[in-house]
Write a protein that binds this DNA or RNA. Structure first.
Lengths: 207, 207
DNA sequence: GCACTATTGACTACAGTGGTCAATAGTGCT
DNA sequence: AGCACTATTGACCACTGTAGTCAATAGTGC
């Protein structure tokens, strides 16, 4: 069923994926309308039920597919040989921003899915999300060295605060993100590195 | 109309406010159902349209009412004579957590309202929010002294990062918040102050 | 031209919506 | 008691939108 879907004309398939992603992202599982999806994707009503038996299967297959797309791209771009914790975090933040810029709707989809409450899919989504975290988060922190962090502060707390600071920066930009020019994106990278410098001054040994 | 509503039997009024808050908070403007609200509030369908001509007025009056409740309580609890920036931020974070714990649904309501997209109320909500920020944010930062921040880092960036760190902490707790005992809440306050100590060590002059 | 799959879109049965309104209950006043 | 007035009820309505079906058609490869 889903195999058939993956084998269809890629252009049309991509239209369907994008339409469904957008609809579920903006309205959540229950209020997303299959009618809207087929209208946006410019296919007939019947076709979507030919490839996916029902709305639930469409949603879950889409969830899996988008997870794979993002995880693959994320891990692909993340350098694996950066031991310094701060540099690694800075790099991870950049990669995330890049991906967020490239796939805003997919990120919105996962944000919506994360707070999904409809009983028809709630558990399935939570399970998939947990599994994804367990599988991939360790890969990010693998081989990272925390020994540069100041001795006089709790390492774990320092790590959390650094992550929160970078998250806060990303959130503060998320509104103006979509219409950012290449130059503005470049400026942002410079700005991030100035934040990284501050973090280094504050949380690292001053050697 | 709304005056009449405020004069009705407080217990019943509170039932209506809570039911409407919950429904709009969980489903957003469009998908919130007046039928559900009256069912939850244990009143008849007609009554809600007796006090509020239509769904839109109900929503906007509720928005204004809840804004006043939260703003009044927040400013009332916030000490006005704390000049030290870090202490003030720590105190503001605590007050926010306290309020969040006391009124989780109201916070959820505003979170949902913040991303409201329905054209019927979108502009009104955005306008109200902007006005509220303009009116009240200056009150928080009034008379605060930033001179203790280290000279070798950009003050504005330091301020942002401190705020982001505290926000990050609050977010990390927001999941386990509702079922927190009094003791756990106390532990959390201790934990916050240990984070505050770290922030002080990192961002303040070391004198 | 046959066998097969991909695709269409009108159609259905249904669930749920915001809002109405005639009827009733309750309250305070004379 | 009886009048005037408001608070409250809930059956009802016209309407919108839903997920999913299915007979019919288009397209493709042999």
């Amino acid at each position: 069923m889903f195999d058939k879907f993956m084998e269809m004309e890629p252009e049309k398939r991509e239209r369907i994926v994008q339409a469904a992603t957008k609809e579920f992202a903006l309205k959540g599982y229950k209020n997303a309308s299959t009618n809207e999806i087929v209208k946006e994707a410019k296919i007939s009503k019947g076709l979507i039920f030919h490839y996916f038996n029902n709305k639930k299967q469409l949603y879950l297959h889409l969830y899996d597919y988008l997870t794979e797309v993002i995880v693959t791209e994320y891990l692909g771009k993340l350098k694996n040989d950066e031991p310094d914790f701060l540099k690694k975090m800075g790099q991870a933040a950049l990669v995330k921003l890049e991906l967020f810029r490239k796939h805003p709707m997919i990120f919105k989809f996962f944000l919506t899915a994360y707070v999904e409450t409809d009983p028809e899919v709630r558990e399935e989504v939570a399970g998939r999300n947990q599994k994804m975290v367990e599988t991939n988060y360790p890969k990010i922190y693998e081989g990272v060295d925390y020994s540069n962090i100041r001795e006089d502060i709790d390492k774990e707390k320092a790590v959390s605060m650094i992550i929160w600071a970078l998250e806060g920066y990303a959130n503060s930009k998320s509104g103006v993100f979509r219409n950012m020019t290449e130059k503005e994106f470049g400026d942002m990278i410079v700005e991030i590195s100035s934040y990284m410098d501050i973090l280094k001054k504050c949380f690292y040994k001053s050697n």
